Simulated assay, not measured.
Amino acid sequence: MIILLLTWTFTIKQDIMWLEFFAGTGNLTKVMTSAQYKSCRFDIMDNTQPGNRRSNFMDLAVASGFALATLFLLRALPDDFGCHLGLKCSSFSKMNVGTSNRSPCTSIGWEQFKSVILGNCLLERSCLLISLATCLGGVWSLEQPSGALTEFYPAFRFTIRNIFDCGGETAVQCVRWWMAHYKSPTPKRHYAYSNTKTIHKIDKGVLQGWKKSNAKKVVTAERYVDGSGRKRYKGTGQLRTTEVYPVPFAREVCDLFEEMKSFKLGQPQLPSVVPPAIETFQQLRMSDPEIWRHVDLASVYNYLRRSKKLRIPVEWQHLMPSLL
């Protein structure tokens, strides 16, 4: 329904070749742009929110942000684009399990905390973007630091299973690598899921000699004792202020981009006779609310439904409620 509202609201020109969500410093997008790929990036820091605005349109957790991200994904060149999601990992990291209460068996976490709900919402919406990118014929990747419990989340596993059903058991690949091979200030192990086997080429093997060659120690956490005498840890933010993805890593992804697109998998096959859109829409089934607990698509639908530019075709008007 959200995609329909977007197509009835905007004229969609399909010309984007690279999208980066949760871009941070945006080295991937910078390198892609320098290689003449038309690119765009999304990150909450890309928009300074004025006081008179209700929401930040670069924040995927709000209605306007997710609607804009979906719109730009629809603007991608069909069967010839890539997108990367460096999902915010703070709620899924091992250091946060004391708060989030996440584990491989309880990856949803303790939903009494706003930070847990926010992390779940961002991941579930990222899964929808992955599904849309797959259907549009794009190549995608989702990156997380080693130990992050993202890969155990029900909505993510459900999304991967759907892609397996369309493209086979090799339709989604997982790779793990050391970022120190790309001149990172810390060794930092990462993993990524992608719908192309080419993603394995970013793994440069075993990390050797890092401690000897890297004399400068980067402190990523401050240790202190609180008033009750308990040991505490606080992140310094140093890895955020430096380049999250080193330039050599971005160049490696850029060099592999054409090959990645050539070996992408998982796109559903169209039937020999494509039924009318209304017929397909009426046959859609509701998703499992236990899997999509915090995606909150109703707020996105209501946001788009109120648009003054929206023009719903007459034959569809009885199918589109005023509000959800």
Score class of each variant (00 low, 15 high):
residue 101 N to R: 14
residue 190 H to L: 03
residue 33 T to K: 12
residue 93 S to C: 10
residue 207 L to W: 11
residue 245 Y to H: 13
residue 304 L to N: 15
residue 296 D to S: 08
residue 183 K to W: 05
residue 104 P to F: 12
residue 122 L to P: 00
residue 147 G to N: 04
residue 95 M to E: 14
residue 162 N to F: 09
residue 69 A to E: 08
residue 88 K to F: 05
residue 26 G to K: 02
residue 224 Y to Q: 03
residue 64 S to G: 10
residue 61 A to M: 09
residue 130 I to R: 08
residue 199 I to Q: 05
residue 18 W to R: 00
residue 149 L to H: 12
residue 150 T to P: 07
residue 248 P to T: 06
residue 200 H to Y: 14
residue 297 L to Q: 04
residue 148 A to I: 06
residue 238 Q to M: 08
residue 132 L to V: 09
residue 51 G to K: 02
residue 153 Y to N: 10
residue 262 S to Q: 12
residue 28 L to Q: 13
residue 69 A to I: 06
residue 59 D to S: 13
residue 16 I to K: 12
residue 37 Y to A: 06
residue 323 L to I: 09
residue 276 P to A: 11
residue 13 K to L: 11
residue 254 C to E: 13
residue 319 L to D: 14
residue 100 S to L: 03
residue 85 L to T: 03
residue 44 I to L: 15
residue 164 F to A: 03
residue 216 K to I: 02
residue 251 R to L: 09
residue 11 T to C: 08
residue 61 A to D: 15
residue 278 I to F: 10
residue 318 H to S: 14
residue 196 T to P: 02
residue 305 R to L: 04
residue 150 T to E: 04
residue 248 P to M: 03
residue 141 S to C: 04
residue 296 D to M: 03
residue 305 R to G: 02
residue 311 R to N: 10
residue 182 Y to W: 04
residue 41 R to T: 12
residue 47 N to D: 10
residue 22 F to L: 02
residue 214 N to S: 13
residue 246 P to S: 09
residue 147 G to W: 03
residue 202 I to S: 04
residue 74 L to Y: 14
residue 162 N to D: 14
residue 13 K to Q: 15
residue 309 K to C: 08
residue 75 R to V: 00
residue 233 Y to A: 04
residue 61 A to G: 13
residue 29 T to H: 11
residue 320 M to T: 09
residue 266 G to L: 08
residue 40 C to F: 07
residue 110 W to P: 00
residue 274 V to Q: 15
residue 26 G to I: 02
residue 24 G to T: 07
residue 194 S to M: 11
residue 35 A to S: 13
residue 158 F to V: 03
residue 220 T to S: 10
residue 220 T to L: 06
residue 159 T to H: 07
residue 223 R to P: 00
residue 54 R to M: 11
residue 29 T to Q: 09
residue 122 L to R: 01
residue 291 I to S: 06
residue 27 N to K: 14
residue 45 M to F: 14
residue 179 M to L: 11
residue 209 G to R: 01
residue 280 T to K: 07
residue 324 L to Q: 08
residue 101 N to L: 12
residue 180 A to N: 08
residue 40 C to V: 02
residue 140 W to Y: 13
residue 28 L to I: 08
residue 216 K to W: 00
residue 293 R to E: 08
residue 129 L to N: 03
residue 279 E to Y: 10
residue 178 W to E: 02
residue 227 G to V: 02
residue 221 A to L: 00
residue 18 W to A: 00
residue 141 S to E: 02
residue 156 F to C: 05
residue 216 K to F: 06
residue 25 T to V: 09
residue 219 V to I: 15
residue 28 L to D: 05
residue 84 H to K: 05
residue 123 L to V: 05
residue 219 V to E: 15
residue 16 I to W: 06
residue 69 A to M: 13
residue 153 Y to P: 01
residue 309 K to G: 05
residue 322 S to P: 01
residue 208 Q to A: 06
residue 104 P to N: 14
residue 92 F to L: 12
residue 246 P to E: 03
residue 242 T to W: 14
residue 153 Y to F: 10
residue 248 P to E: 08
residue 160 I to N: 07
residue 254 C to L: 04
residue 182 Y to N: 04
residue 66 F to N: 04
residue 86 G to Q: 00
residue 5 L to V: 05
residue 267 Q to G: 01
residue 265 L to P: 01
residue 162 N to Q: 15
residue 168 G to W: 12
residue 260 M to D: 06
residue 250 A to N: 07
residue 89 C to S: 12
